[in-house]
Design a protein around this nucleic acid. Structure first.
Lengths: 189, 189
DNA sequence: ACCTGAACACCGTTCAAGT
DNA sequence: ACCTGAACACCGTTCAAGT
């Protein structure tokens, strides 16, 4: 028996997937959770706080997925590629969650920021390993990570908006662009 | 004396800048345009169509800005860099318009797609010139353009979400990442 | 501590009617 | 062709009250 709070977050996540933030009405969330339409206010300050909880949960889950990817691969270079493809795959599978996580938060969202920082730190560590292995060029690992992440992020966002030129054109989708960048970066090998 | 339609789009743009799509209420749009709260329905099918008109106008303006950049610079390599920095500057100055343009459109938006295709085609042409001048590596120009645009786009989006690691850290912002990528790409020179 | 039901101000959209 | 005013169903949020 899950707590009411967890049930509310679950219902809100399902509604996000179905129609984005506008589809998340506190009334429908309450309905699905089997409580009144304003029971959510006993667990969250307002609608945005509920959405922030959904985003935080998602980002925490992504950090765990990244750790799993690190555990499943040996060579850092291969792992970096797998991690970026994992990011792309997640965003394409759950576009509304992706948009939510990086959406416009009107207030500060400390928990969300913490989750984001944690996930990024893990990726920075992985990139640093790949640099030491000669799979990626030298330089500030944080900055190189930002480059890789920005490319993957932007490729997905443009693809979701239908603004990526050749959608059907073989490997020109987000995964293809990630691979292109890795090829261009080369590394010492 | 501007047409009612143009006045409505103008008012909607101002409201977008002030608070995003949620701040664009047809009632407030009508109020600012000096018409009733449902006069917009005589010019647009619904709220989303009004927002699409705002986005289309913005994207058309961006395409013009890109052409101006092409006219202002001689060397293609320099022009590509200026164009990408122009994109970043626009997005950082008008974050709500940026989010709107690439936001989730529930219906097809033909005019918006046309404007986007036109703007991208201009950039592809510029990239091809830079390739011929040896300022960018060879390969499918559309694909290389997608790489450049995806990086600039993703860097801005992450920066707006506060998810770019070192904000104050000198040149690690969106413009810095664009420059990093151009350096990594090198070209024949 | 957690929840309910009524209420308030607001919104997108529709409709009948005006010029 | 363009606009208005009333109306409908809906929503976020607040509040008094219950256990």
């Amino acid at each position: 028996m899950a707590s009411t709070r967890a049930t509310l977050v679950e219902a809100a996540t399902a509604l996000i997937d179905e129609g984005g933030p506008d589809a998340v009405t506190l009334r429908e969330v309450g309905r699905r959770a089997g409580v009144s339409h304003n029971a959510p206010y006993k667990h969250f300050n307002d609608k945005e706080a509920l959405l922030a909880a959904v985003a935080t949960r998602e980002l925490t889950s992504r950090a765990a997925a990244l750790e799993a990817t690190r555990a499943a691969h040996a060579e850092p270079g291969v792992t970096v590629r797998a991690a970026l493809h994992g990011y792309v795959g997640w965003a394409l599978e759950w576009p509304r969650r992706f948009k939510l996580v990086y959406g416009p938060w009107s207030k500060g969202t400390p928990e969300l920021d913490v989750a984001a920082t944690k996930a990024r730190a893990s990726l920075v560590g992985l990139v640093a390993e790949a640099q030491q292995a000669g799979d990626l060029p030298d330089g500030d690992p944080e900055r190189l990570t930002a480059l890789l992440l920005a490319l993957a992020h932007g490729a997905v966002d443009l693809a979701l908006a239908g603004h990526l030129a050749a959608d059907g054109k073989g490997r020109a989708g987000p995964d293809g662009l990630v691979d292109d960048l890795l090829v261009h970066l080369g590394g010492r090998r």
